[in-house]
Design a protein around this nucleic acid. Sequence first.
DNA 1: CGGTATCCCCGTCGATACTG
DNA 2: CAGTATCGACGGGGATACCG
Lengths: 236, 236
Amino acid sequence: MGATYHQFCPVAKAMELFDERWTLLVVRELVLGSKRFNDLRRGLPRMSPSLLSKRLHQLSAAGVVERRTVGDEVHYTLTDAGLELRSVVEALGSWGARWIGTLGDSDLDPRLLMWDMHRRVDTSAVPVGRTVVKFRIRDVQQRAGDWWLVLDGHDVDICDVDPGFDVSLTVSATLRGLTEIWSGDMSWHEALRAEVLGISGPESLRRGFPGWFVLPRTSDVRRALPGRPSISSADS
Amino acid sequence: MGATYHQFCPVAKAMELFDERWTLLVVRELVLGSKRFNDLRRGLPRMSPSLLSKRLHQLSAAGVVERRTVGDEVHYTLTDAGLELRSVVEALGSWGARWIGTLGDSDLDPRLLMWDMHRRVDTSAVPVGRTVVKFRIRDVQQRAGDWWLVLDGHDVDICDVDPGFDVSLTVSATLRGLTEIWSGDMSWHEALRAEVLGISGPESLRRGFPGWFVLPRTSDVRRALPGRPSISSADS
DNA sequence: CGGTATCCCCGTCGATACTG
DNA sequence: CAGTATCGACGGGGATACCG
């Protein structure tokens, strides 16, 4: 499959596996906890199912991934070798967060963003009972810009069609703004002040809302570049 | 050049650069200290010069590498962003050392091995004056199996043709054996006992010889796999 | 030494459809 | 849900030659 470098160096041997497109992103998804084929797909929207299938086979052959049937579900999990790739993924993520400049428009994807947000909800921080957050991504055309996050106990669902529940809170944002919050380039508070973000609903929910999410680890990485421009605030 | 993943994730953005074949190995060479085009080539024997050139351009465009003319020499050096890739290279190298099993025959390369050994000589450990070590890789055909390591002060040269100096020490080894020593799968001592290595010459030199080299960092990594089989010694 | 230029092949990947 | 099948293009990259 992957071509060999004909080198004994362990970096080269490792890269024989990981220099293939998508491979390390599949690992990233598994590190983040996705186990099922279609969940992996949601985290890798542009990847074709056949290629995902192929990569899972390769990773399995390499001893990184294990495929198991659990009840009537198929689970892909990391082996011990795979778990130790977390350090590689984190090193790359930290480097990327520090050194990659402003994202291009084509890197912004509401589906992927909402999928990532939905899986990083801290359910213990959300009020008891059902809470429904409607997201409106202002600058994305109707269909793709409306999302409903349904929180209920430990269940977190993200829908791109109206599930029909009463909406507890409505969040409006630009795609870039919400992505920059999520990336750690801007705080929720800064975004509100800059009006790339708006939250409407009962004050207690509005205040609590930012705390319902655990930002990705890379959001904490100190930026080396002037980087993805945060709101250059004259005050504060 | 490299295709985009259309993802805002910093891992994905980083991999847009590094999922291309050879790219991270070029970075590895720079991390190891090579600066000049033809030195880089020596550490990447199977890479075509045009591709190396292209990769250097790409890395330069990405802000990882800087090309400078120093006197009449051209130097490629890592920028601050590039220097921080050391953590990525080391994470990959450690993972590879732990989890990659036995090397295939096609991963063994005397040229690359001798090049790597030559640049990890601890000149302070070598006797003063000129010392010439002749290596004979037993199982490699004449031409490719004979190497001369010329040590003189801080100068270290490796030759694949007889430079004509008196030989101070002769080392004979199998290609796999010497590679395994270098990889940390076997100690010099074990190799001597197993007779995959032989050293002939004055005893003081013979005894000192192993200490003239600083093994790669990954040689210290604890193996997770039964792995590249070390000599299974009944005794110890 | 420090690269470019060229050429062409073949494999990868993307897209889409389809199946149990 | 969990994949496989098929198919075509496109361009990456290997090899080699060549240049200042």
